[in-house]
Simulated scan of single mutants.
Amino acid sequence: MLLDTVKRFMEEEIYPHEDLVDRDGEVPIELGRQIEARSKQAGLFAANLPESIGGGGLDYEAMHIIEREFGKTSHALHSWIARPTEILLACAGEQVERYLLPCVTGGKRELFALTEPEAGSDIMSMRTNARRNGKDWILNGSKHFISGPVMPDFAIVFAATGSDETPRGQRRRITAFLVDVGEKGFDIAVGNKCVSYRGYHTFRLNFTDVRLGPGQILGEEGYGLELAGKWLGMGRVWVGAVCCGKAERLFQMAVEWAANRKQFGQPIGRFQGTGFKLADMAVELRAADLLVEDAVRRANAKTMTDVDASMVKLYCSEMLGRIADNTVQIYGGMGLMEELPVQRLWRDSRLERIWDGTSEIQRHIISRSILRPLGA
């Protein structure tokens, strides 16, 4: 029933607007608000958060169904159906009314601000910092490639607040702050335009002596990375689900084209050069789906590890890249024509191997887990 609801919503509210958004590079604000409003009516808005605070209360298996279907279209459109960052569940006291609950109702939108120009994959080299000033904190630094569908109301900003001695040497202490748009010294604007997911903004954030009160720390001082890790792990699994959804849509296009496009008097799918591509695509998609399902079951059982999430992110994003490329190849020249959606899905697919941790970072996490027990 959930799957039917999501599919119907996509067909009625999302797919009809794909070409417009890709062509103009923007989701008209009235369209975004319409998607937001109708997703609330359908019960899809904030479905990932607990019922106790007004969310949909769906578990990971149910969210897997949703994320996979959303993956068939652009983030520019489906992200208007908010799934607030679960790290906000760390809100306490006045933060609940000020930040968490408005995100559940749609009264506010947040950004997850971790990446910097000099600290993408290497988070511990971040330059954004906050120093104590009496009871307050003074925030300085910058972030970029912080993605979202619309100008936010506040950002969850990660900053270095000191360092600690560990058995492996000094380790920077990272803290998460809740920073309202409009705070003095906080400048935010739409940044670079990406060829993937046109209309899905990448914001740049700059902080110049932004004064924050003690009530604007999310969680505890020094525990920002621990909070981020809880979100990033499932975030990578959801990337995997998105990749499977998009791969299925591309695969269906490839199959239909191979069955109906004729050359030398027969459908091109009968030629091994095309038919074998379809066979490989089907196997890879099945394997990717099973990998995501396994991670989701582990997450529901609270046994999923960072390595599990990295395996999903790595395999599914690279599987999608291969399926997207093969679909273009099967379509031939028509696969690159703007009149058909294949080229858009091909462009969108490329980003999945980069954000939420590049393929190289995922391989590093996986290989490190293999070698560390042996002291290497």
Rank of each mutant, 00 (worst) to 15 (best):
K277D: 11
G215N: 12
A90S: 14
P117K: 00
K108S: 10
E339R: 12
M304E: 07
P149Q: 06
G229P: 05
V342T: 14
E18L: 15
F145P: 03
G245L: 05
W137Y: 10
I53C: 14
I138G: 04
M234P: 07
F158V: 14
G215C: 06
A324H: 06
S79W: 09
I361S: 14
F264V: 13
E221L: 11
T305N: 08
N129F: 08
A241S: 08
L139I: 02
M253K: 07
F203S: 08
G93I: 07
V96L: 07
A282P: 08
R127H: 09
H201P: 10
I146P: 08
L225V: 03
D180L: 04
A159W: 02
E97N: 11
I53E: 09
G93R: 05
A247T: 10
E67C: 06
V96A: 04
R168F: 15
K193W: 02
H364D: 15
S359I: 05
G265L: 07
R172T: 13
V342W: 02
N192K: 14
W80L: 04
S79A: 13
R132I: 08
T128K: 04
Y60W: 11
Q329F: 15
I29C: 12
A155C: 13
V157L: 12
I35E: 06
Q272T: 15
T85L: 13
R353M: 11
T105L: 02
S52L: 09
A228R: 07
S369W: 05
L101A: 02
N140K: 03
Q252S: 15
P50Y: 01
R204D: 15
A119P: 05
V104Y: 03
R322I: 13
I29Q: 15
I361H: 14
A259M: 09
A287I: 00
T73F: 10
S39P: 09
D348F: 04
